[in-house]
């Protein structure tokens, strides 16, 4: 069997991933790009596959991007962030308390319990913990960390950890919890956190989310064509709109790497990956 022009890796964090990529595969074929995808159960396997030559490009979480970059640098090869969703830019996470909580400042968190998301969630664990550390508060030392681990290895793509932490917050099991700003709104709208029941204690600096990361030695022409087609994809084209809707994107944008330094620091502080991309956290199972 001949290999298609471009093979992409994606993580199967939900059943819709198949719908999305089967749909895009057919659309790319219609545009003359031979494209196929391989599903991985976790981002660690996917990034390793990028270096084993299994895939030419990967639809990576921000944490997977960090790891791919570290592995590339340590091996003297290069990977590139070539495209992302409009919705991947400038996210913020919030640290939330109950509306009637005595906590008014980050410092009030001392001696309290913070609910975070999955161990590998940039938005609900790593970045909020970094934000607190920058304010002089270290998890485990100044406050207790309670993890709401849902689907480790999927880098927090599954919203379940954030939701479980929010429910625990309302139940009084934790004093504060972390989530993406958009999920705070979504939990208010869907009733998980009734409007007015919580208060935002702190908001992180903006950061970027997923990107398409090329593998070392990826075929440049096919990658260029892939990016060109992505950027040309239009929300008003009914052939792709349902897929874009499922993927949570209105418009594909060129990749940029300016939104990841915060996570790089967070990863070092948490000793999650080594400088070469090795997995350091012994509690991380996927």
């Amino acid at each position: 069997m001949t290999r298609p022009a471009l093979v992409m890796g994606a993580v199967a964090y939900a059943p819709k991933v198949i719908t999305i990529w089967e749909g895009f595969k057919a659309w790319f074929a219609g545009q003359g790009l031979g494209f196929d995808y391989v599903l991985y159960s976790n981002y660690e396997a996917q990034v390793e596959a990028q270096f084993a030559g299994e895939v030419d490009i990967a639809w990576n979480s921000p944490l997977a991007w960090v790891r791919a970059g570290r592995m590339a640098r340590s091996r003297g090869v290069s990977v590139e962030a070539v495209a992302m969703r409009n919705t991947d830019r400038d996210l913020r996470s919030v640290i939330v308390v109950r509306a009637d909580s005595p906590l008014q400042t980050l410092d009030d968190l001392r001696g309290r319990t913070l609910g975070v998301g999955a161990i590998d969630s940039p938005q609900a664990t790593l970045i909020p913990l970094h934000h607190l550390r920058a304010a002089g508060l270290a998890g485990g030392r100044d406050f207790a960390v309670r993890r709401f681990d849902v689907l480790s290895g999927k880098h927090g793509d599954h919203i379940g950890g954030e939701r479980d932490a929010a429910v625990a917050l309302l139940a009084g099991e934790v004093d504060a919890c972390c989530m993406i700003d958009g999920n705070h709104l979504a939990f208010g709208l869907d009733g998980t956190l009734p409007a007015g029941s919580t208060r935002v204690l702190a908001t992180t600096e903006p950061y970027d989310h997923c990107n398409f990361t090329t593998s070392p030695g990826a075929p440049a022409d096919a990658v260029a064509r892939f990016v060109e087609l992505l950027l040309a994809m239009r929300w008003d084209d009914q052939a792709v709109r349902p897929l874009m809707y499922l993927e949570g994107v209105r418009q594909w944008k060129p990749g940029r790497v300016s939104g990841y330094p915060q996570l790089e620091t967070a990863v070092d502080e948490a000793a999650f990956y080594g400088p070469d991309g090795a997995i350091l956290d012994a509690d991380y199972h996927y």
Binding site: R92, G182, H184, L185, G188, G248
Partner: peptide, 13 residues
Amino acid sequence: PQWATHLGAWARE
């Protein structure tokens, strides 16, 4: 209290 945070998240989406 959260209107700007929420509006930003909604606008991005």
